[in-house]
């Protein structure tokens, strides 16, 4: 579904990604780990089309489409989702209006009629239950005054609403206590279908105890330097990254 080849990207003229190759197939769960500053968040931002990043080389296709040529909203319509590391607060825009706009734009793209009010509210209620999101939060402005854990749960709630084909979870575990982590991870697992894929970006093993990856990558200095099975994550947790730096000759 996702095929990234030799992807280079920079921000403010500084190259962060220096040739990423990554293939994700339907149904797979990938974990991308790596030390701070290795380019993990840049990769997720580039994939969803953040305007501050420039792609200088390489390609990314999503179900055969040139992902990099699509606007951020069309990437979403095509089924790409990013759970933000730092979800944005939008004072004055209620979660309900926000989600209704998102859902109906998706439906419009797929040539479906907009949901009527009762269908929409039913959908909201159903999906809220998946991440145990309080009705009160759903009536508030987007992320405004939400705790760290509530913001992350809200991201997964949006994922549940939009039913993406590929979800990127960017440090979804950061700032979560163990209960919130469990709720978020269980939410992601409940949403998993045989044909949907997940890329989990994380520093730590603990999220991977809940969301079990098929493949683990190490991103270092803008390149994927190692790709192995789930056991790689455990090894990184125990031994850190120094052995990898040695392996690649640093």
């Amino acid at each position: 579904m996702l095929e990234i080849k030799n992807l280079h990207a920079s921000i403010h003229g500084k190259e962060i990604l220096k040739g990423i190759d990554l293939t994700v197939k339907p149904g797979e769960v990938h974990a991308i780990m790596g030390p701070n500053g290795s380019g993990k968040s840049t990769l997720s931002n580039v994939l969803v089309g953040h305007p501050a990043y420039q792609v200088t080389q390489g390609s990314a296709t999503f179900y055969g489409k040139d992902l990099l040529a699509l606007s951020p909203e069309d990437r979403s319509h095509e089924g790409l989702f990013l759970s933000f590391q730092y979800p944005v607060e939008i004072p004055g825009v209620s979660m309900t209006n926000f989600m209704r706009a998102a859902i109906n734009e998706h439906r419009k793209y797929h040539q479906l009629p907009p949901l009527n009010a009762s269908e929409f509210l039913k959908l909201m209620k159903e999906k809220r239950a998946i991440v145990e999101l309080d009705n009160k939060l759903a009536n508030r402005s987007v992320n405004e005054g939400f705790s760290g854990g509530e913001k992350k749960r809200n991201e997964i709630f949006q994922m549940a609403m939009l039913e993406p084909r590929l979800s990127i979870l960017d440090e979804t575990d950061s700032g979560l206590d163990i209960d919130a982590l469990r709720i978020v991870a269980e939410g992601v697992n409940k949403l998993k279908r045989p044909d949907t894929s997940v890329i989990v970006i994380t520093h730590y093993q603990r999220l991977l105890d809940y969301i079990r990856p098929d493949i683990v990558h190490v991103l270092y200095k803008g390149r994927i330097v190692k790709t192995e099975g789930p056991e790689l994550a455990l090894k990184l947790e125990k031994q850190g990254y120094d052995w990898i730096k040695e392996e690649i000759g640093e």
Binding site: V48, P72, E73, I90, G92, V93, F98, A101, A102, L162
Partner: peptide, 29 residues
């Protein structure tokens, strides 16, 4: 807020619509 605009775009909301929501939100109080 550019960050809010982008966040909304990543949820599938076109910039024009996102601007509209943000402007309406601005005067909501």
């Amino acid at each position: 807020d550019e960050n809010a605009l982008f966040y909304m775009q990543t949820r599938g909301i076109a910039p024009q619509e996102a601007r509209l929501l943000l402007m309406s939100a601005f005067v909501a109080d």
